[in-house]
Simulated scan of single mutants.
Amino acid sequence: MKRKIYLTILLSVALGYNSAAQIVAPNATLKLVADGFGFTEGPAADPNGNVFFTDQPNNRIWRYGTNGNLAIFMEPAGRANGLYVDPQGYLIACADERYELWRIGMNREVEKLAVNYRDSLFNGPNDVWVSPQGGIYFTDPYYQRDYWTRAVPDLAAEGLYRYRDGQVTRLDDQFKRPNGIVGTPDGKFLYVADIGDNKIYRYTLRKDGTIRDRHLFANQGSDGMTIDEKGNIYLTGKGIDVYNPSGEKIQHIDVPVNWTANVCFSGTNHDVLFITASDKVFTLQMAVKGAR
């Protein structure tokens, strides 16, 4: 793999719509961490700011440390896609190879949390978020993979699910193709992207972990999402678009690739945006921190 650690990309960051919304650090530029991957996805930071991300075509999970070290964390990795570090320090993984939801320890031991819904195999868990109350929320779209032997899904619906205490609950199936997901750190709201319909929905989370008040947040789809300390939502696809909590677009960040898959906040101060973008990964110094 060709690696270019901290190579500064001489591209200006497009700071778009509201100059008063200073979310990117002044004079910050994208830095290329490494390239030569198959397709990068699923960045998730641990409490110390180290990042785990996936290279699904090559069946690997990588770890990028706050010290700049980049190394393979796990291979094979269940064709993992979306990742999230839960409050206990486990890596929750959407293991797409056999349509499962995994919990991975730092010793790389795997526990299969969910393998089906009502005796039907999942379409392929894609992205995941863990609430402070411990509920694991994940999207389950159907993307036909070349490493599958099946050619049609078991489930007719492409839905939003919650896993808790060994039980899987379908929360919503009114999507064309759900994808990115993120919640607020207080556990009050959940955002889900319907990338197939170019929509972002916001739900209120009840105390029991179920959802209510499905609300159209933005007329834009997203592959992956993250949230900052001000409640701004970061959407990915053709670069990164940032929306404030009222659903107004306040900024666009150009990324020099055909597709930007996902983002998370990283670094010792949780103020570095880590970006998975096609065969590359980038960082960008921010003026805000990730929500915690």
Results as ranks from 00 to 15, higher is better:
Met1Thr: 04
Lys2Arg: 12
Tyr6Gly: 09
Ile9Leu: 15
Leu10Ser: 12
Leu11Gln: 12
Ser12Gln: 13
Val13Arg: 00
Val13Glu: 09
Tyr17Arg: 14
Ala20Phe: 10
Ala20Glu: 11
Ala21Phe: 10
Val24Met: 00
Ala25Val: 02
Ala28Val: 09
Ala28Pro: 03
Leu30Arg: 03
Ala34Arg: 09
Asp35Asn: 15
Ala44Glu: 03
Ala45Gln: 08
Gly49Thr: 04
Val51Phe: 07
Phe52Tyr: 15
Thr54Val: 13
Gln56Asp: 09
Asn58Asp: 10
Ile61Thr: 09
Trp62Gln: 02
Arg63Ser: 07
Arg63Glu: 12
Tyr64Leu: 09
Thr66Gln: 12
Gly68Cys: 04
Gly68Val: 00
Leu70Gly: 08
Phe73Thr: 01
Glu75Ser: 13
Gly78Asp: 07
Arg79Tyr: 13
Asn81Thr: 10
Asp86Asn: 15
Pro87Cys: 04
Gln88Phe: 08
Ile92Asn: 01
Ala93Val: 03
Cys94His: 01
Glu97Gln: 14
Leu101Asn: 02
Arg103Pro: 05
Ile104Ala: 07
Asn107Ile: 05
Glu111Tyr: 06
Leu113Thr: 05
Arg118Val: 04
Arg118Gln: 13
Asp119Gly: 12
Gly124Met: 03
Pro125Glu: 05
Asp127Cys: 06
Val128Tyr: 00
Pro132Ser: 08
Ile136Asp: 00
Tyr137Arg: 03
Phe138Ser: 03
Pro141Tyr: 07
Pro141Ile: 00
Tyr142Pro: 05
Tyr142Lys: 15
Trp148Gln: 07
Thr149Cys: 03
Arg150Cys: 07
Ala151Thr: 14
Val152Glu: 13
Val152Ser: 12
Pro153Asn: 08
Asp154Glu: 15
Asp154Lys: 06
Asp154Tyr: 07
Leu155Tyr: 06
Leu160Tyr: 02
Tyr161Ser: 00
Arg162Gln: 08
Arg164Val: 10
Arg164Leu: 14
Thr169His: 11
Arg170Trp: 00
Asp172Ile: 02
Asp173Val: 03
Asp173Lys: 10
Gln174Asp: 13
Pro178Val: 00
Asn179Asp: 09
Gly187Tyr: 06
Lys188Tyr: 01
Tyr191Met: 09
Asp194Thr: 02
Gly196Arg: 04
Asp197Glu: 12
Asn198Ala: 13
Asn198Lys: 15
Ile200Tyr: 06
Tyr201Met: 04
Asp208Cys: 08
Asp208Arg: 14
Thr210His: 12
Arg212Asp: 11
Asp213Thr: 05
Arg214Pro: 10
Leu216Glu: 08
Phe217Arg: 07
Phe217Tyr: 15
Asn219Ser: 15
Asn219Gly: 12
Asn219Gln: 13
Gln220Glu: 12
Gly221Pro: 06
Met225Pro: 09
Glu229Ser: 14
Asn232Cys: 14
Tyr234Trp: 13
Thr236Arg: 04
Asp241Phe: 09
Asp241Met: 13
Asp241Gly: 02
Asp241Ile: 06
Val242Lys: 09
Tyr243Thr: 03
Pro245Glu: 09
Pro245Thr: 01
Ser246His: 14
Ile250His: 02
Asp254Glu: 11
Val255Glu: 02
Val255His: 01
Asn258Thr: 14
Thr260Asn: 05
Thr260Ile: 13
Ala261Asp: 11
Val263Ser: 04
Val263Gly: 01
Val263Ile: 14
Cys264Met: 08
Ser266Ala: 15
Ser266Gly: 08
Gly267Gln: 10
His270Leu: 15
Ala277Leu: 05
Asp279Ile: 12
Val281Thr: 01
Phe282Arg: 04
Phe282Met: 06
Thr283Leu: 01
Leu284His: 07
Val288Asp: 02
Ala291Phe: 14
